[in-house]
């Protein structure tokens, strides 16, 4: 019984120390950011805005909510969508800093409210309007003059949500939502997509120059080259990634990283890919772990029987 008492004391002090240096320390080191379950209604944006823009944002998000209640017509939306295809097309080239994304899986990746907000005013929806104050227009800013009627917005969003919502793989989700700015060297991914295999050294070098040019453009637009995301799944906590993707400003005030507006399902696809690349041993760990532990449980039981047998004659 004495041994159990000693064990209790050892375990108690170990757990107190663990609690102090892990959960408690981390709760003190990082500011608390509330998650919003990937609902985009502008609550956080309005809260964090302290200047004159507060009223503008209130009105803006109220409009978004109003448009969301309109019934969109996908067929009329298709006609509006024709305007988008000028930039959002196969083989699109860098425009004003980044390459316009493919919209092939928009409906499967992004949130409806966010898409409405984005068409209304891209910079405000992305919560990067601080970057475009007066001096510079958002690369997609022209949409504000092209699609103006609430019903038009509702229609094109209805089109995207029904006709551009095919099954999306984790890799495609990453490519469309993150991959135009973020390199991922462990997946041989650059801002220009997956690096192909080159037979000739000079072709490889030529491709590298294209990548460098693209990176220079992204850097010029963002202020710095966005980080490589190969290991990001292990470098940040789950909660950080979730709240950061939902609203980058909440974790890193002033960042030029835009809100991308992923829905919960879209976010899960993206993190599935980040996990495949950054933490590929996860399935193996989960498969082997229980067996190794079971092995040592059996080991401990056998050892206990040996101990009992051995100590019988000395006690």
């Amino acid at each position: 019984m004495r041994e159990f008492k000693i064990l209790g004391i050892v375990v108690f002090f170990t757990l107190v120390t663990y609690w102090g240096v892990e959960p408690f320390a981390h709760s003190q080191m990082h500011k608390h950011v509330e998650g919003h379950e990937f609902v985009y209604d502008g609550t956080a944006d309005i809260e964090e805005t302290v200047d004159a823009k507060k009223e503008m944002k209130k009105a803006y998000w109220a409009d978004v909510a109003k448009i969301a209640t309109l019934k969109g017509d996908a067929t009329s939306g298709e006609a509006v969508y024709a305007m988008c295809m000028g930039c959002h097309m196969e083989g699109a080239v860098n425009m004003g800093g980044v390459t316009p994304p493919s919209l092939e899986h928009t409906g499967a990746l992004y949130d409806k409210n966010y898409l409405i907000a984005l068409i209304k005013d891209p910079a405000v929806a992305m919560n990067t309007d601080h970057k475009f104050a007066d001096t510079m227009m958002h690369p997609m800013g022209s949409i504000k003059t092209m699609v103006t009627e609430p019903q038009q917005i509702a229609d094109v969003v209805a089109y995207l949500l029904t006709k551009k919502a095919g099954e999306v793989t984790p890799k495609e989700a990453y490519a469309e939502a993150c991959g135009r700015c973020h390199e991922m060297r462990y997946a041989k991914w650059t801002q220009l997509g997956k690096t192909p295999f080159f037979k000739e050294k000079k072709d490889e070098l030529a491709h590298q120059i294209k990548v460098l040019d693209e990176q220079a453009a992204v850097k010029g637009y963002m202020g710095k080259l966005p980080p490589d995301l190969s290991m990001i799944i292990r470098a940040r906590s789950e909660h950080f990634l979730e709240t950061f993707v939902e609203n980058p400003q909440s974790q890193l005030a002033g960042t030029s990283m835009p809100r991308v507006g992923l829905s919960k399902e879209g976010y899960e696809k993206v993190t599935a890919y980040l996990t495949m690349i950054g933490d590929p041993s996860k399935p193996a760990r989960e498969a082997i772990g229980p067996w190794v532990i079971l092995f040592f449980v059996v080991f401990a039981v056998l050892a206990y029987l040996w101990k009992k047998e051995t100590w019988r004659e000395v006690h």
Binding site: R285, E286, I288, G289, V292, I293, F296, V297, F299, A300, V301, L302, A303, Y304, W306, K307, E309, T310, W311, V314
Partner: peptide, 25 residues
């Protein structure tokens, strides 16, 4: 050996259960 060791090995068994729980999970 074997008396002290038999107790040590038992403690080691318990320790390994905890250790590999940490390693995997």
């Amino acid at each position: 050996n074997p008396v002290f060791l038999s107790k040590d090995v038992f403690v080691l068994g318990i320790y390994f259960v905890l250790f590999f729980y940490l390693v995997f999970f």
